[in-house]
Amino acid sequence: MPLPFLTADRVFDEAADDRALPYEDRDHWRRPYRPGPWRVAAAALLLLLASYVLFAAVIIAFTGTLSTAVGCLGAALVVILGALRLLRIGVWVSGRGLRRVGFFRTTTVPWEQVIAVRTAQQPVRWLGLPRTVQGQALTLVRRGRTTDGPVPLLTTHDADFLARPDAFDRAADTVEAWAEEHRLGG
């Protein structure tokens, strides 16, 4: 089974020419970086928990009531869907715009509304928790959004880039290249 998110970094490393965006199909939504080890580890633990709950559902189905087994099965499916959604969180780009996928909400910004995408040194949230530390963030400045300020897309201390500064730089450069190419009408 092909896992396209595992080849995202390799595509950029193996690009022979000087193109910043080595993809042929630019209208396909793609994440220009791999999910980080913290995100993958959390999803793996959730899937491990789901396997135990599924095993418990089978045991309960044979020994207990059917309604309790169905409840366990439903809980396991919710945990599995949560793990899959956790793996989809991040920034996705295409020829149509920039998409920021969160756990509960997805926001798509067409390239026509993007004023700037730039890296800035600022306080960032550590693994999405309320605690902030000094780090870098890739920020999005949108047309018509002057009150909120720039929206952080990626940070050096989120689940994808914690302790991986080279991966953050590569992902930030790639998203900036997409923004620059499509903002200028490329």
Rank of each mutant, 00 (worst) to 15 (best):
M1H: 01
P2D: 03
P2S: 07
P2N: 07
P4I: 03
L6V: 06
T7Q: 12
D9C: 01
D9P: 02
D9A: 07
R10N: 06
V11L: 11
D13C: 09
D13L: 13
E14V: 09
A15H: 11
A15L: 08
A16N: 04
D17I: 00
R19H: 04
A20D: 06
A20R: 06
L21G: 04
L21N: 05
P22G: 05
Y23S: 00
Y23V: 01
D25R: 05
R26I: 10
D27W: 03
R31F: 01
R31G: 03
P32D: 06
Y33D: 07
R34P: 01
R34N: 03
P35V: 10
P35I: 08
G36M: 11
G36N: 12
R39W: 04
A41D: 07
A41H: 07
A42T: 02
A44G: 09
L45P: 00
L46R: 15
L47K: 01
L48W: 02
A50E: 08
L54Y: 00
F55K: 11
F55T: 13
I59M: 12
I59E: 14
A61F: 14
A61Y: 14
A61L: 15
F62K: 12
F62P: 03
T65H: 13
L66Y: 02
S67N: 12
S67A: 14
C72W: 05
C72R: 04
C72V: 01
L73V: 13
G74N: 14
A75Y: 05
A75K: 08
V78D: 08
V79L: 14
G82A: 11
A83S: 09
L84W: 03
L87I: 02
R88T: 04
I89S: 00
G90I: 02
W92T: 05
S94G: 10
S94T: 09
G95I: 08
R96E: 09
G97Y: 10
R99F: 02
R100E: 10
R100T: 06
V101Q: 07
F103C: 00
F104A: 12
R105W: 12
T108S: 13
T108N: 09
P110R: 13
W111M: 05
W111L: 04
Q113T: 06
I115N: 11
I115R: 15
A116D: 13
R118A: 10
Q121F: 14
Q122V: 14
P123Y: 01
V124F: 00
R125K: 03
R125F: 00
G128R: 05
R131S: 10
R131T: 12
T132V: 08
Q134M: 12
Q134N: 14
G135K: 11
Q136V: 02
A137H: 04
L138T: 07
L138M: 08
T139F: 02
L140I: 07
R142F: 04
R145V: 03
T146E: 15
T147K: 11
D148A: 13
G149Y: 03
G149N: 08
L154S: 11
L154E: 12
H157S: 09
D158E: 10
D158F: 03
F161Y: 04
L162Q: 06
F168E: 05
R170T: 09
A171L: 15
A171D: 15
V175F: 07
V175Q: 10
E176A: 15
A177E: 08
W178R: 11
E181T: 14
G186F: 06
G186W: 05
